[in-house]
Design a protein around this nucleic acid. Structure first.
Length: 416
RNA sequence: GUGGGUAUAGUUCAGCAGGUUAGAACGCUAGUUUGUGGCACUAGAGGUCGUCGGUUCGAAUCCGAUUACCCACCCCA
């Protein structure tokens, strides 16, 4: 019985790896432009890090994390997100002590125990950035410009930026109560899920897909009406800077964040083609988290994006750089095959990608192999048995051929 | 955790009112080509029809269970 990978995981095969490498290269390029330095944190952390950042009671902690116990009895968890580990590392290594703004970026696997579906896996890869120490709206706008341009650069041209403010500890509780009291009268008419959400997460009721729920809540208050002056000013500042940069956005007051440490700016870039998972990149401001995890009170904002979703969403628009295939060395005859092996080594040591075929196949088969490997050129070593020891350089794309001397081969290939 | 769909060759799929040796396309191997890839033609290899059980003289086909994958709900840090 053959084994398969666990549910919700996948192999990234050589044929796809080029896309991943290119995606991450583009991301690193943007990080360099905007001054984000890479941080690599452990794949697993203490469970407490996530229970403290996410909250003890949620479904997230109780059934969506990969938590396990060490032999020594410590509880560890495969990281279910990138922000909390980054914050932990920031605090532990005292990065804020350097003063100014700390900008961190990361890529890597994330683990969530969920039922897989389109664009959703149990192990997936995220790329993300976090900026610590800047409270004003400029950094929000800068980060959104980064995100918008990055999505463009990877070929996602139809993503829409949806922007909202979730308020702050001063005004969000007021909104939550205003919403509850507005809906309380029709609570009995809501669907079962919303009935439950009323207690657990009333803001999510506004996003219910059931038409009747939508109808019941269409006149419910939105948070933008209830924001405090500071939050309003902040949002206005973000919008002004986005407009100056020419970044299109829409205000969507239904964007919510379940957790209390989120403040003010919240956003999602949404797109079609991802099934029910229509968010391709999301983030927001979390001025409360660093202190929540025991660090100095530090304003912060970040975003993260699932790399699988980015590639899925970009599809054929993804700007895959042209792969330059190897030089393929083909042999006519047994002694020529030995010369091929030696010459391939010589070329590779000179830094030139070289491929050969294995096992003495016909010349036709060897050239077919060259084709399969997307070879740019083929070097055909002549038949020793017929004393035709010349080397033919064949351009695989237009079949042009020239004859080379053995000692010229490396120099000639270096030019190409 | 809940619901729906699918499972036949390396891949994408056909076959299914139950009936001898299970098909196609593409891919693969080789030949036509005293050695030169892509095009064409020809031949060949490759499947215990997801697994287990049941009905039947007979099951890829009908029934049940199970597993895997896909999609959606819940959740979404």
């Amino acid at each position: 019985m053959a084994l398969s990978a666990p549910r919700g995981t996948q192999d990234i095969l050589p044929a796809d790896a080029a896309r991943w490498q290119a995606l991450e290269a583009i991301f690193r390029q943007f990080c360099a432009r905007y001054g984000y330095g890479e941080i690599r944190t452990p794949i697993f952390e203490t469970t407490e890090l996530f229970t403290r950042s996410v909250g003890e009671e949620t479904d997230i902690v109780s059934k969506q994390m990969y938590t396990f116990e060490t032999r020594g009895g410590d509880s560890l968890t495969l990281r279910p997100e990138g922000t909390a580990p980054a914050v932990r590392a920031l605090i532990q290594n005292n990065l804020m002590a350097a003063g100014g703004v700390q900008k961190l970026c990361y890529t890597g696997p994330i683990f969530r125990y969920e039922r897989p579906q389109k664009g959703r896996y149990r192990q997936f890869n995220q790329l993300g950035i976090e900026a610590f120490g800047a409270a004003g709206p400029e950094i929000d706008a800068e980060l959104l410009i980064f995100a918008a341009d990055f999505l463009q650069a990877v070929g996602i041209t139809d993503a829409i930026l949806e922007l909202n403010s979730v308020g702050c500890p001063a005004c969000r509780p007021q909104y939550r109560e205003a919403l509850r009291s507005a809906i309380a009268g029709v609570r009995g008419e809501l669907c079962g899920d919303c009935e439950r959400r009323f207690d657990t997460n009333p803001l999510r009721i506004l996003d219910c897909k059931v038409p009747h729920c939508k109808e019941l809540t269409k006149d419910a208050p939105v948070i933008l009406d209830i924001l405090c002056d500071e939050c309003k000013t902040h949002l206005a500042g973000v919008e002004k800077n986005l407009q100056k940069a020419g970044v299109a956005y829409v205000i969507n007051p239904h964007i919510v964040r379940g957790l209390d440490y989120y403040t003010r700016t919240a956003f999602e870039f949404v797109t079609g083609g991802l099934g029910a998972q229509n968010t391709v990149l999301a983030g927001g401001r979390y001025d409360g988290l660093v202190a929540e995890l025991g660090g100095p009170s530090t304003p912060a904002i970040g975003f993260a994006a699932g790399e699988e979703r980015l590639l899925l969403s970009a599809g054929d628009n993804f700007p895959l750089p042209d792969a330059i295939g190897p030089v393929f060395l083909a042999a006519m005859g047994a002694t020529a095959a030995e010369r091929v092996f030696t010459l391939a080594t010589e070329l590779r040591r000179a830094g030139i990608p070289a491929a050969i075929s294995y096992g003495g196949r016909s010349l036709k088969a060897q050239l077919k192999e060259a084709n399969r490997q997307n070879a740019s050129y083929a070097l055909i070593l002549g038949d020793d048995e017929l004393s035709r020891q010349e080397i033919i350089l064949r351009n695989m794309s237009n079949s042009e051929q020239v004859v080379l001397a053995l000692e010229d081969v490396v120099a000639r290939m270096s030019e190409i």
